[in-house]
Design a binder for these strands. Structure first.
Lengths: 250, 250
DNA sequence: CGGGTATTTGACGACTGTCAACGCCAGTGG
DNA sequence: CCACTGGCGTTGACAGTCGTCAAATACCCG
């Protein structure tokens, strides 16, 4: 596991309005409200290269982010150095929020691909929340949704087999990418920038076993997995194996 | 797995003020604020017998509860009927809150022991939150803490061994019971109303393997486990095995 | 082309689940 | 008081999933 440089890689800083994804962003309301002040508060849009950390668990949680472009992996580090994935953030997702002042991040975030994020100071967010009920509710809802996802992960890791967890994870990503109109071709082809090691981190498996499960899904004709891409041949089976339900799990 | 009767068992309904635990309740502020209206809104204190459900996943989330007395198990049900424990709630804990109107519970709650709870209508809570910033913050903090616990569970289930997870769970409960002054004797003796099956549900293990792990901890002199009771002989080892850290995990 | 990273595969072993049986205990009813 | 009963805890034998170790191959990028 290589050491990654800290956020030295941030380059550029352009106005949030230039981001095309913005219209779809879950967190659009805050982006809108905040826009007027964004420039003068020196909070704006950042770019971060793939494989670099956005923030790290244990560090003071000074900023939260809306992901505008790219894929982001949220994970928590075990004492032996291994990592447990918590969630993949996709464009529009709001990450790194801490409810209290002077808190530390509970997890780390690493860019899977090159990403573009819009940063907010936590302190500013708290101030906004106190003023604006709609935004307060929206943030609360986002947190509640994330909590439900987290509970689903607990259920999956505790009760499901490796194959079920892999299938669930892929099915869930397929579902979310579809909602973001990020599928290719006839809709069965999805971009998949995660390495098998990352997929293993998300599902609590070693890279080797992740590979074996993928091979089985491939042999069973459920999907085709290549670098950077997965083609879902038998979507019904994938959903069935993973027991994926679009709504309740988030 | 036997079928449990629904909340038919609720008996009595007395004023919240009679509960001695109240002074320590995390959720005391709301209890205070809410007290004046509690009676007229027909929201008050319930009793529920051990092994009976307080609420169930998928049902409309009409109420949230502060646990005044007893132990409560939060869990989520897998499609095969097995259950994955999410958390044990102890006196003072606030459970069942849903951020949105017209939501369903994401998980179920079952009384481990006989319990006493103080119920709040979700709609009323939402109204209170909109009026009172302090309470809004407090609920948000409770949710944030629960989220951190949930992330810890994901890490544990994904990366830790059975022995580590059991040790962690016991160490965590020991820590929380100590804070509530619910330990017996010299502080090494803790009440433990969970069955081994429930402990297995929390740690993602079968009852049989849970038993084997407990035997090992017993043979290694770490603890003594009996029905309804655990004596922690070697607290340092327990914490070390489970990699339990009091603060960050909640 | 060369070097590093990711994927793939096989052999082996450890951890955990499954199945089955038995013992213990508390509560119940005769 | 005692036998009965059901739930829980305990144990052993066995099987299967998954991790570990090691090596080979494929891919990407300079």
């Amino acid at each position: 596991m290589q050491k990654l440089k800290l956020n030295e890689v941030r380059q550029g800083r352009t106005r949030c309005t230039e981001c095309p994804i913005r219209q779809k962003a879950l967190f659009q309301v805050i982006a809108d409200e905040y826009l007027a002040e964004a420039e003068q508060r020196r909070v704006g849009q950042y770019r971060l290269a793939a494989r670099h950390p956005l923030y790290q668990e244990g560090a003071p949680a000074s900023m939260a982010y809306t992901l505008f472009d790219g894929w982001l992996l949220l994970y928590r580090t075990h004492s032996d150095g291994s990592r447990q994935g918590l969630r993949v953030a996709l464009p529009g997702d709001f990450v790194g929020y801490a409810a209290l002042d002077d808190t530390c991040y509970s997890h780390s975030a690493m860019a899977i691909t090159d990403i573009t994020v819009c940063g907010f100071r936590q302190a500013d967010l708290h101030a906004i929340i106190d003023h604006d009920l709609d935004i307060a509710r929206q943030i609360t809802n986002i947190q509640a949704r994330y909590l439900a996802i987290c509970e689903s992960n607990v259920l999956g890791l505790g009760r499901k087999s490796a194959e079920q967890r892999i299938a669930f994870t892929i099915a869930e990503l397929h579902h979310r990418l579809k909602a973001l109109d990020m599928l290719h071709g006839d809709g069965s082809e999805m971009p998949f920038p995660l390495t098998q090691e990352m997929l293993g981190e998300l599902t609590g498996l070693t890279p080797v076993h992740t590979n074996r499960v993928l091979r089985k899904l491939r042999n069973d004709g459920v999907l085709v997995s290549e670098r950077q891409r997965i083609v879902v041949n038998d979507h019904a089976r994938l959903v069935e194996i993973g027991e994926f339900q679009p709504d309740p799990a988030g």
